[in-house]
Design a protein around this nucleic acid. Structure first.
Lengths: 304, 304
DNA sequence: GGCTATTGGTAAATAATTTTTACGGGTTGG
DNA sequence: CCAACCCGTAAAAATTATTTACCAATAGCC
């Protein structure tokens, strides 16, 4: 790095704000107003510095104050110091925002949730760069290769992580309007057993869970289609080929547009939640906070 | 002056010391040692800044810490800020010491006390410049035209002044060795009445005070010489022409060298004291403190 | 000239902050 | 594998900063 410097000779740094503002205004009161302090606070700050330096910085002139020559000599240095710090903060921010934010999520969440929001996010935060990476649904959040994750957790994750739940792991079937119509008016859960059901290979128990919560016996051995991601299942549902079981708010747009429908309203809310995750020490990180806050906002807007 | 800058965006200034040292050492503990703090203090300071900026500044690497890229980006700006402040302090000091220090005192104190010390003081403090000004003995300290005074005060001066007593207002007669010899062995106070006594026009009562304290009646109307400063009176005493009444430690050298003697030991200590005076708000001023401390030291050394 | 509004300074009380103490977890090197 | 070392955390203690309440001085205004 660099050589040692004598930090002990520095005046009380906090009080320098008072000196800076007081010098600029040539008035204790105005400085106090600017700093949102009372005038004795600024008065005291100035005195502290005068004592620390052994130099008189202001003289009283009527009911105002006037910088002494020493005050005028000192000011530019203090000013330069503050400007350097502000530049440094700026530079650190720029640098921090410049590194791409690595976001990890599952295929379906990526395609059907992230993909619909990320463009707007990038438009709102043009300085941020994103790298989206996708993993299988049962993967854990990998804090080495990602900064933030949108993942499902059955139980709150370990204490080393910061965890913000976003929405329920809520199971409900969807299919094409034609498929729904073929089951007649107001089909029951049992009626679904007559149709091709698609399951996700990592979550084969979901259909059983849903049927049980609907009070219908379901034989897991009964033949059904298994694919490896919900995105594929949904594609098949859209193509009128099967009924898919959705596990989160991933079909809102298709439902809104009518391309998919819910043949019946029953929803099975499972334990655990979808949420955003990051390492605890990064939760105040500028990029990460920006990203998480935006996504939380967006999720709240969706469910409203 | 200059334009407003946004002081609110500044990180907690005091904590920057911790960041600076921690970055330089790449170690919290070493930084703490340098700053004479405990390691949690520095750890906390660093965290404060990280939170304020929303940027991670250090990463743990085994049992040390390593600056992140952001930390390395920020450091030079912080460093520059500190250096600017140190320069500013230096510049203010230089400027403060550059203005001559205006010292006010009376003729005799000036000639017979200051004049003997000032050269050494200036040698010890080569950056300080002095202007000595002299006034009549009954003048008050004039804080418009002087920074410090060496004056006599009967009662402690008003609260707006900083007052450091240096020595008593002690009256005792001095004369040449010949004059003393002409009074025979062990003269009494009354014997002095037969010799020419010199008084100072602003302090004509002093002889009366001294004789009364010695238990001798003294008629103020009795003829004696009146001059306007003790310095003149002493000159006459040195020339064997009269007995002078000294009111402070102004003849120490002459007594030591034997050029003047005290015909008898009786001393009348009057109320009040000689001392250094300056405006209260200046008492921490670098030049003034330097000067006063030096003179206090010197006076203490003399009376020792 | 006297009155009032405004500005600063001071001191004690209060609030905020920094620092320390005490402890725990993780890493390194013998 | 253990001891030494370093860092982080949380609560307590110590220190600083700020406010409140007051006073003195000035300047503008009848």
């Amino acid at each position: 790095m660099q050589n040692k410097i004598d930090l002990r000779k520095l005046p009380p740094l906090k009080s320098l704000k008072g000196f800076e503002a007081a010098t600029r205004h040539q008035s204790i009161r105005e400085a106090a107003d600017e700093l949102c302090l009372t005038h004795p606070a600024v008065s005291h700050q100035v005195q502290l510095i005068e004592e620390a330096l052994g130099v008189t910085l202001f003289a009283q002139d009527g009911r105002r104050i006037v910088s002494t020559e020493e005050g005028r000599v000192l000011y530019p240095y203090v000013r330069a110091a503050f400007e350097s710090l502000l530049e440094g903060v700026e530079a650190a921010h720029r640098h921090a925002l410049d590194k791409p934010l690595r976001v990890q999520t599952y295929v379906t969440a990526s395609i059907r949730w992230m993909a619909r929001r990320v463009p707007q996010f990038l438009q709102d935060n043009p300085q941020v760069k994103l790298v989206l990476s996708t993993c299988a649904v049962d993967w854990e959040f990998d804090d080495v290769h990602a900064d933030v994750g949108l993942v499902y957790c059955e139980t709150p994750p370990s204490h080393k992580y910061h965890w913000v739940p976003l929405f329920d792991y809520a199971l409900f079937p969807v299919c094409s309007p034609q498929m729904a119509a073929s089951m007649g008016q107001g089909p029951t859960a049992a009626d679904l057993l007559t149709k091709p059901l698609i399951a996700i290979n990592t979550e084969v128990r979901n259909w059983q869970t849903w049927f049980e919560s609907a009070g219908v016996k379901f034989d897991p051995a009964s033949s059904y289609l298994v694919v490896d991601t919900l995105a594929v299942a949904l594609e098949m549902a859209l193509n009128n080929e099967a009924i898919a079981l959705v596990n989160g708010p991933f079909v809102d747009q298709d439902l809104a547009s009518g391309r998919l429908v819910r043949p019946l309203a029953h929803t099975a809310v499972c334990p655990g939640e979808w949420g955003l995750i990051c390492r605890k020490e990064l939760k105040e990180n500028l990029r990460i906070r920006t990203f998480m806050d935006w996504m939380i906002q967006s999720a709240a807007a969706q469910s409203r």
